Amino acid sequence: MHPHLRHLITLQNLNAATLVHLLDRAEALRVASAHGTRKLDLLHGRTVLNLFFEASTRTRTSFELAARRLDADVVNFDIANSSTNKGETLLDTLHTLEAMHLDALIVRHREGGTPDFMVRHAASGVSVINAGDGHHAHPTQGLLDALTVRQHRRNFDALTVTICGDVLHSRVARSDVHAFSTLGVRELRLCGPRALLPGAEEFPGCVLGDDFDAMVAGSDVVIMLRLQKERMIATLLPDEDAYFARYGLTSARLKRAAPGALVLHPGPINRGIEIASEVADGVQSRILEQVANGVFVRMAVLAELLAR
């Protein structure tokens, strides 16, 4: 049995039954909404607020589409012109928004732990959904990546999944590890330059290494992470060309993976740094499917938390 969810902050403590239930619900909503062309009234009368303290195009748009397709009212909070820029504390902002009787807050913040802070200090029955916090978690990305893989590979326990790039600073990597390990994949490999790999103690059970050619060999799923260019300077990494030579996913490197291996990337893509264009746009790429699945996963989470 899966417990009823009030909030979604991380996938770390969710059991496999809950994850599978959310993936099943996303698939059911895809069918019920005729692939997003038919509006459902599951959240009629509910109000959802997008509270993005950090720039985001695809995640914010995806949550907004998900809420609107369930017939919720959506408000986008304009941080750039808000009172937080006038020195208002996060707590005051939270209580001010709660006074407007919202049903859900979708929160993205550069500081890890902000959505959890809001859960602990919320005075009302508002549900909090983490749309990405610091290096900590991005739970709906973990779910949509798992859904994308499940649509092509039914048995997680037969899969070797390799995640490559800036693992150390990646909330996507953490949520993907939580999702895939809970769903029982055979092997999880984390690859990147030594300066961008976390300590092994943070990811028990994962294989860590800095040789991408060796790590990609035999992989059924290859998830490339966005490299934030500012990290190259901060951690004295090689330049973009040298990084691509060692850690870029090229057609030649992809041939080392298992036949028909799936290629994922959370976006936005730095072409020619993390991934070659012919791979990003190639037959094994599932990147645009991830984007489409993001809307249905977020519909599933909103419906799970808010449907009466």
Rank of each mutant, 00 (worst) to 15 (best):
I106R: 00
V283M: 13
D145I: 02
R189Y: 08
A200V: 10
V279C: 10
R186Q: 15
R174W: 13
D220A: 03
A146D: 11
R298D: 11
A292E: 14
R246I: 00
E111Q: 15
D71W: 09
A32R: 10
A137C: 07
L227T: 06
E64C: 12
L29W: 07
R68N: 12
L159M: 11
D241M: 08
H44A: 14
P268Q: 11
T57D: 13
K86T: 01
H152F: 12
A26G: 13
T59E: 06
A245C: 04
V263P: 07
T47D: 09
T18S: 15
I9Y: 11
A137H: 06
P3N: 11
L97K: 02
Y243H: 09
H21V: 00
L306D: 01
L94I: 05
V283D: 15
G113I: 06
A131Q: 10
A34P: 00
H101N: 13
L5G: 12
S124L: 04
A242C: 03
L306W: 05
A67W: 05
A300Y: 01
D176Y: 03
I79A: 12
N13R: 09
R58D: 10
E98T: 09
I233K: 15
E230Y: 01
T160C: 12
R69V: 04
V119S: 11
D78W: 01
R186T: 12
I275K: 02
L306P: 02
S251G: 14
V172S: 08
S33D: 02
D73L: 15
H265P: 05
G132S: 06
E278R: 01
H101W: 08
H35I: 05
H169T: 05
T57C: 13
F53G: 07
N76A: 13
G248N: 06
E88A: 07
E27T: 14
R153F: 15
F156C: 05
V167S: 03
G142N: 07
